[in-house]
């Protein structure tokens, strides 16, 4: 899906929140809605992942690649933030 659609939805959401376009009973439940949407998506992706035996069988190889990304990302963030923010404070 186009990144522009995501950006547009985000902008509409911000405007709706900022200008109070939604009724109070929906406003008070928006955080709950966000959590529910994330859980629904994770569940659906989990279902698809489970039905792809080939991906599950490759898990050890994917795990090594994921571990490499994890370490690279962690150290890259830590190093650049240390350079930008200095060693002491932020």
């Amino acid at each position: 899906m186009d990144i522009l659609v995501f950006a547009l939805c985000l902008a509409i959401g911000i405007a709706a929140g900022y200008r109070n376009w939604l009724p109070p009973y929906l406003t008070s439940r928006s955080s709950w809605g966000l959590t529910a949407a994330v859980y629904l998506l994770l569940f659906l992706i989990g279902c698809e992942l489970g039905s792809y035996r080939s991906v599950l069988e490759q898990m050890s190889g994917l795990g090594v690649q994921a571990a490499a990304l994890c370490l690279g990302g962690l150290l890259g963030s830590a190093l650049l933030c240390r350079i930008v923010g200095g060693g002491g404070g932020v």
Binding site: I12, G13, I14
Partner: peptide, 17 residues
């Protein structure tokens, strides 16, 4: 669900002045 998710993320941001 992704469209709903982005709307909800934006809404949560917008309602917090």
């Amino acid at each position: 669900a992704l469209i709903l998710l982005f709307l909800a993320i934006g809404f949560d941001m917008g309602k917090e002045p």
